[in-house]
Design a protein around this nucleic acid. Structure first.
Lengths: 117, 117
DNA sequence: ACGATACGTAGGACTTTCCCTACGCGTCAA
DNA sequence: TTGACGCGTAGGGAAAGTCCTACGTATCGT
């Protein structure tokens, strides 16, 4: 847990940060290319650099990247901990797509006999 | 893949749908309580029913729930396929939190010697 | 056929997101 | 010290998100 806000608010931030293809692409670049300064990242996008800076801020506040200052550069690094949290969040849903694959769960799912009032 | 839009736009919709605690709670209710009509879901929230209807629309357009009409009710059901897609999206990042746990990857990660220009 | 029930949609108010241009601050090279 | 470089922030405008209160539509019981 970080210092900021409730658990739900933090999940909000992480999912919202991921809900943008530019930001997901930044994560991929950091994953495949290692830690990089802003300019190197910005080269991949058809967007002004200040706009990318704002995307980086969103990623920072979600805990998905960290920055390390190096002279006049800021080296951004992928921080995967929130992604591990996402995976944990997914676990209770796993059986739903596993069942679906076997076909049995899908059938049972179509015939619910334990609905709430 | 659904019929609508590009791959990235679809990921946008799924992550954006998940970036709201009300909608995540709806998914949890459908997961733990099985398919349910709108009113049963709405009882759990401090929110007017039309607002919840809009949340359900967001979930529907992300493919995370489906509806089945039953008389004047609409039974909502969890659809986990987009969540399986999320898990697939996460896979290439897994090594980052596994490495972190061993400590070795973390150290190597702090000493990047293959940075791009 | 009538009213009640279950739900969606329309339209409005407010907030947030996402892009831009302009500018400020620290760092490096000469 | 001066100018260029690397980057963040301020402020603005268009669009989208999130809640609300009406209201419309289909279905059920009587």
């Amino acid at each position: 847990m970080t210092a900021t806000g409730t658990r739900a608010a933090e999940a909000d931030r992480v999912f919202a940060a991921l809900a943008n293809s530019t930001r997901r692409e930044v994560l991929r670049l950091l994953r495949d290319g290692g830690p990089q300064p802003v300019q190197a990242l910005a080269d991949h996008f058809d967007m002004r650099r200040p706009s990318l800076s704002e995307h980086l801020k969103v990623l920072r506040e979600a805990g998905l990247v960290s920055e390390q200052r190096n002279g006049r550069q800021r080296i951004y690094r992928l921080e995967a901990a929130p992604l591990a949290d996402v995976q944990d969040w997914l676990h209770p849903y796993e059986r739903f797509w596993r069942e679906r694959l076997t076909g049995l769960g899908a059938l049972l799912d179509r015939m619910p006999d334990d609905e709430p009032a």
